[in-house]
Design a protein around this nucleic acid. Sequence first.
DNA 1: CATACTTTGATCGCGGATCGAACAAAGTCC
DNA 2: GGACTTTGTTCGATCCGCGATCAAAGTATG
Lengths: 417, 417
Amino acid sequence: MTNETFANIDSGRGDGARPRPLAETVLRLIWRESEISRAEIARSHGIARSTVSEIVGTLLPTGLVAEVGVGPSGGGRRPIVLQFQDHACVILGVEIGATHLAVALTDLRGRVLAWEHRNHAVRSDPDGTRALLVELCDACLATRPHGAQPLIGIGVAFPSPVDPHHPDQVSDLVLPAWQGRTGLEILRQRYGAPLMLDNDANLGALAEGWWGAGRGVDDFAYVKVATGVGSGHVIGGKIYRGATGVAGEIGHLAIDPHGGPCVCGLRGCLATLVGAPALVARALALRSEYPQSVLARAEPSIESIEDAALAGDALALQIAREAAENLGIAVAGMLNLMNPALVILGGGLARLGDVLLEPLRETVRRRTLVSSVAVSEIRTSELGPQSIAVGAATLILQAALADSSLFHSALSSVEAP
Amino acid sequence: MTNETFANIDSGRGDGARPRPLAETVLRLIWRESEISRAEIARSHGIARSTVSEIVGTLLPTGLVAEVGVGPSGGGRRPIVLQFQDHACVILGVEIGATHLAVALTDLRGRVLAWEHRNHAVRSDPDGTRALLVELCDACLATRPHGAQPLIGIGVAFPSPVDPHHPDQVSDLVLPAWQGRTGLEILRQRYGAPLMLDNDANLGALAEGWWGAGRGVDDFAYVKVATGVGSGHVIGGKIYRGATGVAGEIGHLAIDPHGGPCVCGLRGCLATLVGAPALVARALALRSEYPQSVLARAEPSIESIEDAALAGDALALQIAREAAENLGIAVAGMLNLMNPALVILGGGLARLGDVLLEPLRETVRRRTLVSSVAVSEIRTSELGPQSIAVGAATLILQAALADSSLFHSALSSVEAP
DNA sequence: CATACTTTGATCGCGGATCGAACAAAGTCC
DNA sequence: GGACTTTGTTCGATCCGCGATCAAAGTATG
């Protein structure tokens, strides 16, 4: 119930006073456009020029917006160009994986200013994880020149479902050694900044939506195919978490009820068919039929299968086709249920590009009822291994742009004297 | 692009002036509570008592709210009880099925004041459908005493996906004779009230959420199992339509990729396994193994199968168990993907109650990964055959409570002289 | 090059919405 | 019966956003 540590829950609806509602709108617009004049703000939002002038007057002293020269004339006085100051604040994005940690320090445009990562036995060593986390965060923050830019928040990606109403709880099934608690309040205490937590696939989706393949798309799904298979869903520009925060388990969609058992206790899950272990096992099983394949010689790994498929190896292509078929069944089901405008394929298997996408698209086309569903695009991820940590930082940025008091509290703590 | 006929698109965000933002909030609260005092409104929303007084002062003359006596004292002056006037306006809810029409006239609390329905060849006769629709609407409206209550809007349930951005378009696949157009603007013209359109499963879900098994639940799914199988999803209290309005096609989730072909062109869809024709076919196939079954004697129908299952017939129970198993696979997949707090089972098959629910729950339990998913409740619909028409009316009510200008324009058209 | 028109941005007064303080009305508790 | 409580109203004070107006700084045009 008490939720002092995490700012996850949308508490900004009807609680406090909302001074200058339009100020938020204007700030968001300046962020979105990066550079814009007062008159253009007024035009594009139907606000009076006088109001815009006044609001900008309150925005300038915060340092979030600055006047940078004049723009071209449109037949009259030349406009003063306002520019959002992407470097006014910084954000920490933390990725906690099953076996590694990564921390990104970003500016307000999602650019990575500092990057630290380390392999670690996260599953079995929660205390060590937290200590290492502090170390990596310190290292990232130390790169700031003279501590000029204040930290507005810390976003954390966690490798298990996160209940938005109880963000500090951890599923005992996924990380039993953590004893049901993240224990991340030390981060908030140490850095004095709000903390927000979410599932890793959700944050990968968020990052793609803000900076990658999903830019400008309001409803899309991000499917991560690696060792495991998971998905994050952005609906109306916001992460959809479901009633208890566990939405997006596409990996455990049943593809074949007569299929093999999954670690989760079910049968024929997508994860048992297209996860990395499944593809390796499939390579071993098919090896005798493809004696000339490079995979027939040495012990195959998921990387070697991917490399071989990209090189045109017949066995690897067969495996990719099969994976695409199974993935396509699940994606088609997801399209029928959730109807996103776009599906972004992430994780290691996305390396295959069109080798995977072409048969996948074909399967989806054959398996979706309504024509408008079939027009959903399927693309691969644009962001690299930093996507999840950047997504964690984006969680904070999104919150700050929705409620600029986060910016102001960070800035005032610096400018107070 | 032009969208004069349908009010479907949320156009009430940032366009026009919003006089008295709190007035909307107060009106919604009074509606929700039915009876409440000014002081309690102020307390529960943190609004100043003076503001509430002033707002209520503007609400009383509209007739939507009235003072009805005094409440019990809490140690001081007794409060004046304000009551929302459920009968101040009426709403028309129209259900267009594949083979029938139904019209409900409701008050502002979802109560059905008049009800007309008729079988009709909707698929093949769009013109006759529209004419009959007008007839039924007229009959419902004529029951009003002296035309006292103004009509605030007409909601329409349509048996095909509805794109929220192009509500007048109809899928050629489902209703080819309609030539891609609903042609329902005649309703708006005849009755001079805003028109809103949505898919039938979505509106069944909405009705259950406002008046039935989903009361008070913000995220739930409604699965309708009848001749066809479809689903509607309420997310955050609002209907989720997806990027192009076709979300919720659970009937075409692939259960068995090696299964029989579906009308939609896919294989092994849920609809081919638990739709009414599939169950009848299954009864015929299994008849020889159950010679003592009542279904072995006469030609089975879906109603007779349901009746037999409720009577404990072994063959019918076997069919129900199989249907529950297949339905459970699809529902489990939907839970994994969308994580609703509740699943409401509607349509004819819901008559079976626990006969269907028990094995269904068991299958879902076995097929959902995370414990918190498994706690999702599964219940049967509470509303009868009127649910979809009532849901259509609820669409209008929801819009009016979100933007009370709908109430006022209806009321002023009466009170003008 | 002077003049007319355009566009931008600032200033000022107005109106609406909400709040807090003060007050009357109506009860409860001792 | 007197002190305290609660409700609802009234009355400035404040804040936000708007329109009108004006100065500044351009462009188009003769």
